[in-house]
Amino acid sequence: MTAPLHEETTAKTAVAEPAPGKTETSIEGRSLGRIAWERLKRDKVALVGGAIVLLLILVAIFAPALTALTGQSPNERHENLIDPLFSTPKGAFGGMSGEHLLGVEPVSGRDILARILYGARVSILVGFLSAFVAVVFGTILGTLAGYFGGWLDAVISRVMDMLLAFPQLLFIISLISVMPNNMFGLTGTGVRLLVMIVVIGFFGWPYIGRIVRGQVLSLREREYIEAARSLGAGRGYIIGKELLPNLVAPITVYTTLMIPTNILTEAALSFLGVGVKPPTASWGSMLSDAVTYYESDPMYMIIPGVAIFITVLAFNLFGDGVRDALDPKGTR
């Protein structure tokens, strides 16, 4: 919630006119996806962002293997590398060495690289899954509101307005703090991850819902929908076969832009101490731990901070690129 998702920033472009008619019947007969890909390929910055995103996903998946390659593990303590007087790592730059490439943590001497790699798992997992939750909720409710209109639309729209105006971080923290420690057979970090995914996703769906509703609202009056309806197509068919495919573009754009926001939220929660539990590594909790040492061991703060920065920036660059690529007006 540090950086709320602002659809206004993009509303002018991506949302505007996915215009299925235009692209599908364009002279070359190229699909929207193909056009978008062509455009994206030309956007070097976005490609770099995309490459980094891909790399991060791979890192998250293969974190154990990568860590094993360096001969370290995230929770092994190396107290012999810690200055007993100050609790900070011996040696310059937070104890960086051939063995510990990014140095070690103050106090415990755990390998920072290993913890960063494992921390990526938490960030990526929460970022993606909570976006997924938001997309599912947002698409369903947004479609319902837009397609059926009337009182259903009124209720859903009001709820969305309300959620958007809520002090969300506050609610998320309160919610997490009253959640029990054991649920559905999960304990400790597992519960926290689940709760974070669900809660962040829950507060994110109105962003998707709003867009979807607007799209459906304009699409349902289009001729081709009318045509389908007059041919006797059922509601389910119209929504599933005619409407949803046209929603893919804006949803893709918003999902890509939502993931970095969610990653920031997860980091903020862990920073505030309501995120994952020790000894699980998370970038946010590393940063919060580093606050105490920001003068004596600045590297410990800089490393997770930069990790968050690069990740979020890469997602944002990529998301921007995808949006521009899917924008038929091509304002760029």
């Binding site: 003068e295 703060m301 920065f309 920036l313 944002n316």
Partner: peptide
């Protein structure tokens, strides 16, 4: 601007404190 959106506030805050205040 894009970089600005991507920075966690507590990170920039700490950096700013370390540099400008301390």
């Amino acid at each position: 601007a894009l970089a600005g959106v991507s920075l966690p506030i507590y990170f920039t805050g700490l950096l700013a404190l370390a540099v400008f205040a301390y």
